[in-house]
Simulated scan of single mutants.
Amino acid sequence: MQKTVTKLADGRELVYYDPDGDVIRDATDLRTPEPAAVRPEIRLDPVLGDWVTVAAHRQGRPYRPPVGDCPLCPSRDGRSTEIPAADYNVVVFENRFPSLSAEGAGRAPESRPPLFRAESGTGRCEVVCFTSDHDASFADLPDSRAALVLDAWIDRTTELSALPAVRQVYCFENRGAEIGVTLPHPHGQIYAYPFLTPRTGKMIARAAEHRARTGRNLAEDLLAAERLDGRRLVLSGTHWTAFVPFAARWPYEVHLYPHRRVPDLPALGPAERAELPLVYLELLRRFDRLFDTPADGDDAEDTDGPKPFAPTPYIAAWHQAPRTGGEELSLHLELFTIRRAANKFKFLAGAESGQDAFVNDVLPEAAARRLRDVAS
């Protein structure tokens, strides 16, 4: 992998990732930067004990701009974007509208009553562009490009974990307007949090309880139990296994674990790194074959010839152990969609949003069968 670090006109860092070679990345950002007003803060919920990020400046971020105005496409024909180069493989850059930022780090906290605890939202948010092709998706990538994205995730996890204020690093992708994606260009994000996220905190607590009760690791026992049961298995390789969890929250939800427990992406060995892009691409492609949903503008009743189908919206979330206190956790992927049928979606309504008590309309064993049926 060739890594080239440069700066955008406003000082934000941008990193090109290319296959090993002699690629020259010397394009300059020709834009005139606008003054930044980035002052996120985190506020502690006194009832639940969760940190909530408040980033009011994000109201001004782009919302589904026309293709010709996409800020994630390469800079071409006199139009400058977030990527100065005329083409690229994989690019990572600091988000222009970050939820967390180094801006304001160390500033004196505002005086508030004891129950209203707040701190500066010190951290980092990055955008990961998987390809310069605006109309592609991660599932369209060749194995070699998916491997390059993995290299970028590993590199960024290593770099961001070393920042003093960062507690944990989270790599993820939102895909599809139904999920809430504001830029359709294929990309993901990385959040470097200054606190332990609620979901990670729950995972650590459950793993600690399991260790105290059994003397064993929860992730290892769970993977062994799913492999033995077999009904919810989706696919299994030499180093990775994917399964629908027993208590899946989402209509189609898959968890992907390495057979050897590791805390994070940088801890993966060469063989695990080599197999992961193949397994991950297969999972994404199966998600795209789940439903026969006509793409926007197509007439579902017109049967003259094959029709293109709208890609399945999904969230792909990499769970990694935090810098400290997560020794029992295992790196794993959680991939899920809110689509429960061809033209039906599961939205978080009263039970889920009001009580955090999920109701799943699809039997997990049936979801696993369907995902096996659409194998390549």
Rank of each mutant, 00 (worst) to 15 (best):
P98A: 01
A317G: 04
E41K: 13
A192G: 08
P186L: 08
D18T: 15
A208V: 06
G78I: 08
D133V: 14
F195T: 14
L363A: 14
A165W: 11
Y170C: 11
E226N: 09
R43P: 00
D373C: 07
P245D: 11
V128Q: 02
L329R: 10
A56L: 10
D221P: 07
A342L: 02
G215F: 01
E272S: 07
P164V: 10
I83A: 04
T182I: 03
F138A: 13
R249Y: 04
R58D: 00
I204Y: 07
P74N: 07
D77A: 09
K202A: 15
A271H: 12
P194E: 02
Q189T: 07
L223K: 04
R289V: 04
D221E: 11
A317P: 01
R64K: 07
T122V: 13
H239M: 11
L183D: 04
T122C: 08
P66S: 08
F358V: 03
K344Y: 01
P164L: 06
A321V: 02
Q320Y: 01
C70Q: 10
P66E: 07
A274T: 14
D264R: 13
F358Y: 06
R232W: 12
D221Q: 03
V149C: 06
G305M: 05
R25N: 14
A86E: 15
A317Q: 11
A36G: 10
L284P: 05
L283E: 08
E328C: 02
L256W: 09
L160P: 01
V15H: 09
T293E: 05
H210F: 06
P263I: 13
P245W: 08
V362D: 08
E220G: 13
A212L: 08
V128M: 04
W51Q: 00
T337Y: 12
P294A: 02
L276R: 11
D356C: 03
G230R: 06
C129R: 01
E328F: 04
V362Q: 10
V5M: 12
E13R: 15
P33R: 11
D155E: 12
R261C: 14
T158Q: 12
E119Q: 14
P266Y: 06
D135S: 15
A357N: 07
T337D: 06
A165I: 03
G188S: 10
R216F: 02
D10G: 15
A342S: 09
N343K: 12
N174W: 11
E327I: 08
L148M: 10
P277S: 09
E119S: 03
A317S: 09
L268A: 06
D135G: 14
